[in-house]
Design a protein around this nucleic acid. Structure first.
Lengths: 255, 255
DNA sequence: CGAATCGTTGATTCAACTCAACGCGAGTGG
DNA sequence: CCACTCGCGTTGAGTTGAATCAACGATTCG
């Protein structure tokens, strides 16, 4: 529960990130930027594990994540849970408003999170008026799909060590791109159970896998934070290349 | 190598499918439809296993699949291959043109396939001029991402039988929606190795899994074609619900 | 000081993989 | 027309990576 002043500051930073990202493909027109600035955003916070959206709901708002992490997940018949995406600050969770049908997955807060909401309808109106915005949103959706495809390859065809290393690499790079601290020692805000649900493994096996990555010297751990001690090794183990993230060249420092 | 007359007919059907799909969210303006009709499409065919796009290439064209199947896949470090998406007739493979970076995966023909290509630049110009088109393309990208997320859950958290059954259900429903024959007996144009690469399993295990699905009475097989004999059972085994495909109500008949 | 959550570790089981062989049908070429 | 090859499907035997089951620490919080 910050004071409104902080909220406004956060919102402005978030909007700046959003505009930067929307113009990542092609610069968008000043009128379009102005239209984004005119959108009415309302702020709110979520506690860890609080639901942002539930499967079957019909969201009316568009959510811009300002602070913290969210995750999307699905529940399957045998009771298993699969985390299908992670959202970092600056990400726009447009989700299913456009499909006008109900949400096909859940969105939950991973950490304490602050978001800005605005009416989905207004965003669509904005996109309809300014085709540059619509194209930019299309672009963002394609990038998100690209990340999701890489996750399929990760879960489907890599073993536990490689999978885990790959996820750590992705998180480090994305955190870096989102302006969250140095990549060589980032705080991993996930429990081992959540890691397991992300990687299609069990929490127990995540534990052993993290240990083995530590033994191999790729990472060090302290309590619940993870530091990357050997980037080259981690990238090698995880078969990681950042190209599928489609970041602009200036957004990260990994060769 | 059909005669041009057939090509033109195919192209017209494909364009009609495309326009129907683009207006699935909201009807698009007549001017926009006209703009699509003015796009210059050039036809070509691919032989099975022929590459449509290779990882690292920078595609200049936008591809509309008219006939046959394509698949997207990635190769991982240990040599494994993971199929990350299947394209059916009517699908638009916009892929990475927008991201202006190089392709992060391969696209290959599963069967003999006919496509219509047009300059990606022209499509983007079209979207820029008619925001309704840009929004519709955004919409399609979101649906594709939704399918990809379901695949993650499928591969990550379901066992071999359930996974396989789920894929069969998806293919049947999508084939049906694409107007390809009755859903209760569709021809599966994939080898067991390709099925394995789609589901994160080995070809040998796919073989045993298909057999067990047959023993349970859900499917029957003959040579390389599969017929669904018990829909309810297959849906149950595969924990399948079509909602993630975001088809319009009139597009399939499965409850 | 409990209670709860998360991490750690060991013993055991099992689903899927690997390896290897063989069958079968479709081409192909002598 | 037959012999050959090649790709794909099938089947069995043995192995293994990850799951399961179960217990015990560590940390946090009320």
């Amino acid at each position: 529960m910050d004071i409104p002043a902080n909220f406004n500051q956060l919102r402005d930073i978030g909007l700046a990130m959003l505009k930067a990202r929307l113009s990542g493909f092609h610069p968008i027109a000043p009128e379009a930027t102005a239209a984004i600035d005119r959108l009415q955003w309302s702020m709110r916070t979520y506690e860890p594990s609080e639901y942002v959206l539930r499967h079957g709901e019909r969201p009316k708002v568009c959510t811009l994540l300002l602070k913290g992490f969210l995750y999307r997940h699905k529940i399957v018949a045998n009771g298993g849970r699969q985390i299908v995406a992670l959202a970092l600050p600056g990400d726009l969770l447009d989700v299913q408003q456009l499909t006008l049908s109900q949400a096909d997955h859940n969105i939950q807060a991973l950490t304490e999170a602050t978001v800005a909401n605005c009416r989905a309808e207004d965003v669509i109106t904005c996109a309809r008026t300014h085709s540059g915005i619509a194209i930019a949103l299309w672009h963002l959706a394609l990038i998100e799909a690209s990340i999701t495809r890489e996750w399929i390859a990760n879960i489907g065809r890599r073993d536990a060590q490689s999978r885990t290393a790959h996820l750590l690499c992705e998180l480090a790079v994305r955190c870096d791109a989102a302006g969250l601290g140095a990549p060589d020692a980032f705080e991993l805000p996930m429990t081992q159970e959540q890691l397991g649900d992300t990687l299609g493994l069990t929490a127990v096996h995540i534990n052993r896998t993290l240990r083995s990555l530590e033994v191999r010297g790729a990472i060090t751990r302290d309590k619940r934070s993870i530091a990357v001690t050997d980037w080259r090794a981690l990238r090698e183990i995880g078969d990681f290349s950042a190209d599928y993230l489609h970041l602009r060249d200036d957004q990260h420092a990994f060769g």
